[in-house]
Design a binder for these strands. Structure first.
Lengths: 210, 210
DNA sequence: TGATTATTGAGAAAAATTTCGTAATTTTAA
DNA sequence: TTAAAATTACGAAATTTTTCTCAATAATCA
C-alpha cells in the first residue's frame, strides 16, 4: 500500500478521539467541516486524510459518527487490545502505569521492567517488576507487542537493542536520545523538552517582534 | 522574519541535544554528516535547517560544537531561564515536577496549581499547591511565562482560558483535547495515545503485509 | 415536484519541505 | 607548493503535503 504520512496517521487519531466524544454526546452525523473546526484544521484536510483509505461519507449529509469511528479503528488497528511492556519504573514510568487514557484506547500494560535490584520483585498496580535481563521470557509469555521506554538516555539504546532481540517491533521512547533500530522496527518519540523549546522559540520571536 | 517550520525548530532542539552530548565527550568539531547520522536524518537537512538562521560552519572543516550550540541556544531562546507553572498535580503532573530534563534545559517549575481542595496547601518539592482560582496573582508574582496543562480533558479548555486571561502566552498541553487560543498564544501538544496509535497502525500494516 | 442548500470525493493547483548539484573554501597529504 | 579530500552554503529540482475547485449527490424547503 502507498505510504501514508505520519501527519495523516496522527490526525486520524485525533479524528478518532473527536468521534468518541461526539458519540458520547449522542451525535449521530458529523461533517468534515465540524471535525475540522474541533481540531483547528481545514475540512479539505480531513477529507483528504480519509480519502487515502476509502469513501466513508454521504454527499450532502456528512459522516455517520459510529461508522467512521469503526473505520478509523480498523485502519489504526484499534479493534484489538495491544500488550505493552513498560521499561523503567521511575517517575515517568510510574505515572504511565496509572495513565487511564492508555487502557481506554486498548493499550494494556502487562509487564514492568527495571534494572534496579531494589525495585525488582516489587509490585505496582498488580504487576511485578522484572529485571530487564529476564525480559525475553516475560515478553514471550505475555505476548508483548509494544515497549514503552522510560529509562535514562544513557541506557536507552542498549535496552532497545535487547528488546529488539526478543522480537519487539514497536517502541514509544521517552528518553531524550535518537534510537537506532532495524528497518522492520518502529520507534516513536515522546520528547517533552522539544515541545518546551518550541514554546521558548515562539516566545523569543514574539519578544523580538514587539 | 520568514516563518520557520515546526519541523525545523524541533530538529534544532535535537541538534542542540546532540551538541551537548558531543561537548560532554570533549568533541570540538562536528560535521553536518555526523549530526545527521546521530539523528537518523540527512546532512542536507541539517545544513538547510541551520541556513535559515545564518552560516555557522567552516567549509572543509565542519562546525565548532560550542559555537554552534551557542548559536542554537540563541535561536531557541535557551540562554535565559523560563518560569513555568504546572497545572494539575495528578500522576502525570507529579512526575513532571521531578523531571530533571526540564530544569537542565532551563525550564524551572515555579508554581503548582490544582482545583482539588484536598491538594491545595500541600507542598511538593518545595512548592505549595495553589488553587487554580488564585492563579493570576501567583502568575504575576512568579513571572510565569509557560504553563504545563496536566488536567483532565473536560476542564483543560477552561483552565487555559483562565490562564490566557492572566497573560500566559505559551502552553504545553497533556490533556487529550485540542485547545482554542487567540492568535498570539501558542499551544504545543504532548499526546502519548497518538504515538501509541501510530505504532498500532504500523504493526497492523506489517501483519497485513506478511 | 423543483429549486436551493449542504456536503463529499477526487483531481488539479499551490505551497511547503526535502534532497540534489555544485562552487567555494579549508585542511591534509604528496 | 600543489593536488586531493572534506565539507559548507545556497540556489534549483524533486517530492510531499495541503489547499482549492467543482461535479455529483443527498436532504430540505417552497
Amino acid at each position: 500500500m502507498k505510504k501514508i504520512s505520519d501527519s495523516t496517521i496522527s490526525r486520524l487519531s485525533t479524528y478518532y478521539r473527536t468521534l468518541s466524544n461526539l458519540i458520547d454526546q449522542g451525535v449521530e452525523t458529523v461533517s468534515s467541516e465540524q471535525i475540522a473546526e474541533i481540531n483547528n484544521i481545514t475540512s479539505a484536510q480531513v477529507r483528504k486524510d480519509l480519502s487515502f483509505f476509502g469513501s466513508f461519507g454521504k454527499r450532502g449529509l456528512g459522516y455517520n459518527t459510529k461508522d467512521l469511528q469503526d473505520q478509523i479503528a480498523k485502519i489504526l488497528g484499534l479493534q484489538k487490545k495491544w500488550n505493552v511492556a513498560l521499561v523503567g519504573v521511575g517517575n515517568i514510568g510510574r505515572a504511565l502505569i496509572d495513565y487511564a487514557e492508555f487502557k481506554k484506547q486498548g493499550f494494556i500494560i502487562k509487564a514492568l521492567f527495571d534494572n534496579d535490584m531494589q525495585k525488582v520483585g516489587q509490585e505496582i498496580g498488580g504487576l511485578k517488576i522484572h529485571h530487564i535481563d529476564s525480559a525475553c521470557n516475560v515478553i514471550k509469555e505475555q505476548k508483548i507487542e509494544i515497549a514503552i521506554i522510560a529509562v535514562p538516555a544513557k541506557v536507552a539504546q542498549s535496552v532497545v537493542d535487547n528488546l529488539v532481540q526478543c522480537g519487539v517491533k514497536a517502541f514509544l521512547n521517552f528518553a531524550p536520545i535518537t534510537i537506532k533500530v532495524p528497518d522492520d522496527v518502529m520507534v516513536k518519540y515522546e520528547n517533552m523538552s522539544i515541545e518546551l523549546e518550541a514554546l521558548s522559540y515562539f516566545l523569543t520571536q514574539n519578544e523580538k517582534g514587539d
